[in-house]
């Protein structure tokens, strides 16, 4: 964007960017430095030795995977229906769905708590999976519908002329053609499910079921005031997220800007 011709100008810009970056890097430095303070690697060993630590990862994985599958299937079907099939009052349904985008999850606490205890869902994975998926679907449908809208109608009409029903059109056209936006949906859903704190906090009581976002609290109890262990546990839980981001960097950024670029 900027054209800097002089050398001093370029150096100034580089320094400016670096200074601006310090507040962003500082917390990360604090985290890593604190985790290695005192016993160094011993902190990590102590954290990993705590029985049940791996369980948090497994639980987060199970919940995230279930939410992703649910959101993906339901979203692809709905986006296809909205974009290419005949629905009376289609926009009414669509706006009903869109209004859900503004919903803060805290609004659902009391009703879900009451309902979950009645249905026996309280303190099961489902108590977290279902509301998380429900909150992700509206945005995923919005994104995917826009994408499928841009696919030519002729494609679907030709398939129909050739005798393919909606189901075959979905499997052989929609699923393969929506791969780029499908990847974006997958990433959003993964981050949302993996990072969610409120639903696991309220709906998962037994330690066997709790997710990684509850790890810090667990360790505050476990190691009382030993900050270094708590920071070591933060580093360990952050590693999978950073690795996932670095290996899927393109996908993350493309997915994020998928909505912003016309």
């Amino acid at each position: 964007m900027f054209e800097i011709r002089s050398r001093t100008g370029r150096i100034f810009l580089q320094i400016f960017a670096t200074v601006l970056l310090i507040p962003f890097a500082f917390p990360l430095v604090v985290m890593v430095k604190g985790a290695f303070a005192g016993e160094g690697l011993g902190n990590f060993q102590a954290v990993l030795r705590v029985p049940g630590f791996g369980r948090f990862f497994v639980n987060s994985l199970i919940i995230a995977a279930a939410v992703i599958v649910l959101v993906y299937v339901v979203t692809m079907m709905a986006a296809f229906g909205f974009a290419k099939l005949h629905i009376r009052f289609r926009e009414v349904y669509f706006w009903l769905l869109l209004a859900c985008l503004t919903l803060p999850e805290v609004v659902l606490l009391a009703p879900l708590f009451a309902t979950d205890t009645k249905l026996g869902l309280y303190d099961t994975y489902w108590a977290v999976i279902l509301p998380l998926a429900a909150l992700q679907v509206p945005f995923a449908v919005l994104l995917t519908r826009n994408f499928i809208n841009s696919l030519p109608d002729e494609l679907f009409e030709a398939a129909r002329v050739d005798g393919a029903n909606s189901y075959r059109g979905f499997i052989y056209l929609v699923i393969p053609l929506t791969r780029p936006i499908g990847a974006a949906v997958l990433i959003f859903t993964l981050v949302a499910a993996w990072n969610d704190y409120l639903f696991p906090l309220v709906f998962l009581q037994s330690p066997d079921l709790q997710t990684i976002t509850l790890v810090p609290q667990f360790f505050v109890g476990e190691f009382s005031n030993d900050q270094t262990k708590i920071l070591a546990s933060a580093v360990i839980t952050a590693i999978p997220e950073i690795v996932a981001y670095l290996s899927l960097q393109r996908l993350f950024e493309r997915g994020l800007s998928a909505g912003a670029i016309k």
């Binding site: 649910l70 009391a110 429900a134 679907v137």
Partner: peptide
């Protein structure tokens, strides 16, 4: 072809759960 069956799962999951929650609240 009719599309209502295709959007139904999303409506049940999202609109169903969320509007039920809002109504209950």
């Amino acid at each position: 072809p009719p599309g209502l069956p295709w959007i139904l799962p999303a409506l049940v999951l999202s609109v169903g759960l969320i509007y039920y929650g809002i109504g209950y609240t």
